[in-house]
Design a protein around this nucleic acid. Sequence first.
DNA 1: CCTATATATCAACTATCGTTGAAATGTAGA
DNA 2: TCTACATTTCAACGATAGTTGATATATAGG
Lengths: 119, 119
Amino acid sequence: MDERQALAAFAALGQEHRLRVVRALVTAGPDGLAAGVLAETVNVAGNNLSFHLKELSHAGLITSRREGKSVIYSAAYAGLSDLVQFLMRDCCQGHPEVCAPAVAALAACDCTTGDTLHA
Amino acid sequence: MDERQALAAFAALGQEHRLRVVRALVTAGPDGLAAGVLAETVNVAGNNLSFHLKELSHAGLITSRREGKSVIYSAAYAGLSDLVQFLMRDCCQGHPEVCAPAVAALAACDCTTGDTLHA
DNA sequence: CCTATATATCAACTATCGTTGAAATGTAGA
DNA sequence: TCTACATTTCAACGATAGTTGATATATAGG
């Protein structure tokens, strides 16, 4: 992930409605949520949500698929993972105190059991 | 870190000059950089940079201290770490495929040797 | 084919953000 | 104290982003 992509991703996440959408999709899992359900969840008008979903899609943070009359959106796990890696990429240039806490916190999250982070 | 703080942090990082400032400060380490040096590094006018530095400071991503005539800025490692944790907090609700790659990537970064991530 | 449902597009408006230039503040040395 | 240097503040302008309402597209069922 280069700076331009990271910039787009951060800008996308720096908006209330879009951040809520991403969090809703991340917690919803790979099955995703229909645009209409998302609109209710985030409490945003459909046409407006559509604008934000396009933004998130361009930023590589979500993906979509059509399923009958609905369009189902889900989190782009790879994109999110890349963004985390980008944030931490420069943290280790001789200064382990930067990333050590973050690594420790993530390591404490046992993904195989479905536990959540206790931040 | 609550949603409001995360929102401010993401919005702060979603701006070209500010993202460059943060990266410059993260790589600079705990010693930090003077405002003037940052202005040259990021190629932004001093008064304009001052605006962005205030924004980043409010978002909890950087800190400052005066040293003689200069004001030295450094990365707020705790703030950055919190942000990473916030991004990953909801990743494990029964769907380990979300955060597993990110955790693996961070684990591959041996902070004690000063190695950087190979993303 | 016609209608209902679900989502997306577009133009227009408003608000917010980023930049600029001028001026103020704070610090150190002559 | 006077001057030079470093940074910040402020008002004003231009650009960009978010919302809204109206309209368009796509799909399924009667």
